[in-house]
């Protein structure tokens, strides 16, 4: 694996949030390592509040990591200042969960799209108009939306606009932060297919964040499963589909059969209280003593559990 083959690589990212009233800082994510190759999709699965979105923002440096490095095509982004990072923002973009709030509600759609295009290209106004029309037709929208305010459009339309805005500056790496979560059932599949098409067409590296393992499975080449701020399983999708080893991943595959409790762990493995393996094996000591590390069990398959052989 050469450096140029990788679009983005994160090593040992840690982030804690400290509130004013909390004595202890809140753990957002711990020991996050990932890498995405050119044109590939990495799916990030987990419950809400487990730090998925934080990982996405850390990769874009919208928030500062406490420690760790983010390499974008070999350039260490964490060493750059915010001002120096701005030229690189052309290359990585984000599609937001609530697209309707990611557009300025007092701006017409056309102006919102124009803003970013104007920043990175030297097109004349007429050319910009043509370019925007092209983008709009690429995401299957009619030109009528351009004269509207965002509040007057439906959820699916705004999501398409968000994708169009992302496409407009032709990034190499895109983070899609739960893009399907707030949409209607019949619209979800439209958007998912659109994302897949565009990703293959422009060979974009995609980080697809979702809480639905099934949709992630459809769209991505690699999957990592996150629980309470840590990666518990990470691997190629074909491998995970056949042999998911961590109890949490197995739970996500069929949530009706295996129960999960609400209790928080006091120490040791983060998944201990809800783990069915822990109960099955008769509450072994090792689980309450140490947090298992992400270890490569077989080729392209990493699992963080004491009992996986």
């Amino acid at each position: 694996m050469t450096v140029s083959d990788e679009t983005i690589r994160a090593e040992g990212l840690y982030k804690y949030f400290s509130g004013k009233n909390q004595k202890q800082p809140i753990k957002a994510c711990e020991d996050v390592n990932l890498s995405i190759k050119r044109g590939k999709t990495l799916g990030l699965v987990g419950e809400s509040g487990c730090g998925k979105t934080t990982v996405g923002r850390l990769l874009l440096r919208l928030i500062e990591p406490d420690s760790g490095t983010v390499l974008f095509q070999g350039i260490d982004l964490t060493l750059l200042k915010q001002r120096e990072i701005r030229p690189f923002r052309k290359h990585f973009q984000m599609i937001f969960q609530e697209s309707s709030s990611a557009f300025n509600p007092r701006m017409k759609v056309y102006d919102s799209l124009k803003e970013s295009i104007k920043l990175y290209t030297q097109l004349r106004p007429k050319e910009i108009k043509e370019y925007i029309n092209l983008l709009i037709s690429r995401v299957n929208l009619s030109r009528g939306v351009l004269d509207n305010f965002v509040g007057n459009l439906s959820g699916g339309e705004v999501k398409r606009l968000d994708i169009a805005r992302t496409l407009s500056i032709e990034p190499a790496f895109v983070i899609a932060d739960e893009p399907l979560a707030l949409l209607d059932m019949s619209i979800q599949s439209q958007i998912a297919n659109l994302l897949l098409d565009i990703q293959q067409e422009k060979s974009i590296s995609l980080l697809f964040i979702s809480h639905d393992l099934r949709i992630v499975e459809m769209l991505s080449h690699w999957v990592c499963v996150m629980y309470s701020g840590r990666f518990v399983e990470y691997g190629r999708i074909s491998v995970i589909r056949e042999r998911s080893l961590h109890p949490y991943t197995r739970y996500l595959w069929n949530p009706m059969e295996l129960g999960v409790s609400d209790r928080l762990p006091e120490g040791g493995c983060i998944y201990k209280p809800s783990c069915y393996l822990y109960q099955k094996r008769g509450f072994p000591l090792i689980c309450s003593e140490s947090q298992p590390l992400l270890i490569e069990q077989e080729k392209d398959h990493f699992v963080a559990c004491h009992f996986v052989k």
Binding site: S154, G156, E157, D184, M185, S186, I187, Q188, S189, Q190, A192, N193, L196, R214, I215, E217, M218, R241
Partner: peptide, 23 residues
Amino acid sequence: SVPTDADIKKGKKLKVIQGIVPN
């Protein structure tokens, strides 16, 4: 439009309902 296991294994695309939700 709900993907089944067989669909996923074959790597099929999601089936799509065309059009928009009626206002």
